[in-house]
Amino acid sequence: MIKLIVILLSAVFINNYVLSRFLGICPFLGVSKKLDSATGMSLAVIFVMLMATAVTYPIQAFLLIPNNLEYLQTIVFILVIAALVQLVEIILKRYIPSLHKSLGVYLPLITTNCAVLGVTILNVQDYPVNETTTFWWGFAESMINSLGSGLGFFLAMVMFSGVRSAIEGNDIPKSFQGLPITLIAAAITSLSFLGFGGIIENIFA
């Protein structure tokens, strides 16, 4: 049980997908301007990450490994993720049109979001089914890791949208306006996450 908590917390803080692994930077810079759309995007990403893991982990365990088809991992996973993102888009368009509009092009871009593909691939690598672990245990670990990664993405997005709104009102030199100052701010934000390194393991050690 403690192992699951460690996985969750380290996925959120230590191995934060945006700020430590540098995956999913595109929506991180693109949608973090407003808190509402940042929250909406993060929730969509959490949903897609969980769904993607729930579908791809069994595919890996029951279809790809028994048939020695591990090399199809990337293409099959992308196929599943793309379908899921389309599904999310249809659902959002029907039930939350305002969020659908504010996410704009970034929603279909979750399809090729490396954070989502990264989560699914790292899950099957880090928590594989083998002699010592059963399928259900590995599946639970993977789902917790996906949830943690999604929450980490959410945390980074919300934090950074706060940072950006603080930047907004300032008198920035013209050559730094727009993306340059945003990238510098992102770098400093990710630097602060370095401080979490090693904390979680030692707390539960």
Partner: peptide, 12 residues
């Protein structure tokens, strides 16, 4: 397998 997965996704 890829075709089958594709067809299932498309149907959904």
């Amino acid at each position: 397998p890829v075709v089958i997965i594709g067809i299932i996704c498309a149907a959904v």
